[in-house]
Design a protein around this nucleic acid. Structure first.
Length: 460
DNA sequence: GGAACTCGCCAC
DNA sequence: AAACGTGGCGAGTTCC
């Protein structure tokens, strides 16, 4: 029996969630303002130096000739006009809304002009300085920051955060991550601890569609969906994750195909992404192109030996991969998607397993994605609420600091660490599946510990 | 001089 | 036939 929740259950979750999040907001976290200000100054010097180098280029002289005193090298609109109208470069891509050529990183990287690298470098530094360090300084009071968490703003019933946004602090770019997270500290004598759900959205999607192949992937730790897809995409027998080059192939399959497909993307875009992951050009291929494989050959050698001689042939191949992905591998999942959209068109609204109703004019991808996103977040919120209860019941000195959709950041007293970790595992592995019977997959978490009295930065 | 818009970019 | 989901925010620009 998989009992679905009601609107009253949904209401209770939001009600308790708001209270738990409000308590976390009141706690907040420590911030090293002196560091932020020093770093902001050093970034400003670096940016000015960079700016000087831009001003010494031929591109800038053309630019200044046209715009005179209005010249602003931070203006993408001006840059677009110089590149695509004055210099008549063919725009690699257009912007979303405007009729202008795009000047985002992806586009500029495709134009062979060294000046643009300087502009991109400047953009990155300005982003770190103004969006993150600037916000920390602006939002801090006596060395404390209290980000706000909202439960009423997001169409999919996820959360959002503001003042400052705690949910988009850099993580993937090592330099940006280091600079921004070095500002964030636990209370004196405490340590930051972060818990992350493992593949939460995919786990939750399986609770909706119950696809047997997907359930096997999620229940059997030996199986590896992304490795299997990498093998199919790159026409290889097996993928050995311990080999660095095979690991890249797996990452390419995961981030360039599997996840975009789950969000509703199609093979044409996937081919672009995968080619860039493995460094292959969008043209006819030659020997020795792209990333190197363990036997010393390159990925282009391997694909050409297997009948793919050009990017165009690869796109056709990806079309077939997509067809087999939904038609053979995840048949049941695909049937669910179709039925789910049909149900929306019949009723005009849909319900999540957590009891939330969503309606209004929606596109196909929204109809399919909202329940996964929302429900996954509700697992996190349940965990957050229960942790908050235990913390107060047992009078912990440890505290909840914030939440990022499928992860929680805590400020932990070192002596309480074993209890905190035990509590997290108990909530996620026992209480949650007991409370929500529709959870038919093994939910799991990773727990990351940072050093006592040290900032939110991994020891490398 | 501020509101609203666009673009770009950070997170999941 | 069509073609990637959810946010927040800074800067530039345009409009009133």
């Amino acid at each position: 029996m998989r009992t679905k929740a009601t609107t009253v259950d949904a209401y209770r979750l939001i009600h308790e969630g708001i209270l738990a999040l409000a308590r976390a907001e009141r706690q907040g976290f420590r911030i090293d303002i002196e560091y932020c200000e020093k770093k902001r100054e050093s970034l400003t010097r670096k940016i000015a130096h960079n700016q000087q180098r831009v001003e010494d280029t031929k591109l800038y002289r053309r630019w200044a000739h046209i715009y005179g005193t209005k010249t602003n090298i931070y203006s993408n609109h001006q840059l677009a006009r110089i590149l695509y109208q004055v210099l008549k470069i063919e725009p690699p891509k257009m912007t979303e809304k405007g009729v202008e050529g795009a000047t985002d990183e992806e586009s500029l990287a495709q134009i062979d002009m060294p000046e643009l690298k300087l502009i991109l470098q400047m953009r990155k530094l300005v982003k770190i300085r103004d969006t993150y360090l600037g916000a920390f300084i602006r939002e801090s009071n006596d060395g404390w920051i209290h980000p706000v968490f909202h439960l009423h703003t997001v169409r999919s019933y996820r959360s959002s955060s503001s003042d400052p946004n705690f949910q988009n602090i850099p993580k993937r770019d090592a330099e940006a991550m280091e600079i921004c997270r070095r500002a964030i500290y636990p209370r004196l004598g405490h340590m930051l601890v972060e818990m992350d759900f493992a593949s939460l959205e995919v786990m939750i999607s399986a609770c909706y569609h119950k696809d047997p192949t997907m359930l096997k992937y999620l229940r059997d730790k030996q199986s590896d969906m992304h490795a299997d897809m990498a093998a199919q995409i790159f026409k290889m027998e097996t993928i050995d994750r311990s080999l660095p080059s095979h690991y890249i192939l797996r990452q390419a399959a995961k981030n360039g195909f599997v996840f975009p497909q789950f969000y509703g993307d199609y093979y044409g875009n996937n081919a672009v992404g995968i080619a860039s992951w493995v460094e292959l050009p969008q043209s006819r291929w030659k020997k020795g192109q792209g990333i190197l494989l363990p036997d010393g050959s390159s990925i282009s050698d391997h694909l050409m030996m297997n009948g793919l001689h050009s990017y165009n042939q690869f796109v056709e191949h990806m079309k077939g991969v997509e067809e087999s992905f939904w038609g053979q591998r995840f048949t049941r999942y695909n049937q669910w998607r179709k039925a789910w959209v049909k149900k929306y068109r019949r009723l005009g609204y849909l319900e999540m397993l957590t009891g939330f109703t969503f309606s209004g004019v929606m596109r196909k991808n929204e109809i399919i994605n909202y329940p996964m996103q929302g429900t996954a977040f509700h697992c996190l919120l349940y965990t957050f609420i229960e942790l908050d209860k235990m913390m107060r019941d047992e009078g912990w000195d440890s505290r909840l600091v914030g939440q990022i959709h499928d992860s929680i950041l805590m400020d932990v007293h070192p002596e309480e660490l074993p209890r905190v970790e035990q509590a997290i595992r108990m909530i996620v592995k026992e209480m949650l599946p007991a409370a929500w019977k529709w959870i038919i997959v093994p939910l799991d978490v990773e727990i990351e510990r940072y050093e006592i009295d040290q900032p939110w930065v991994k020891k490398g």
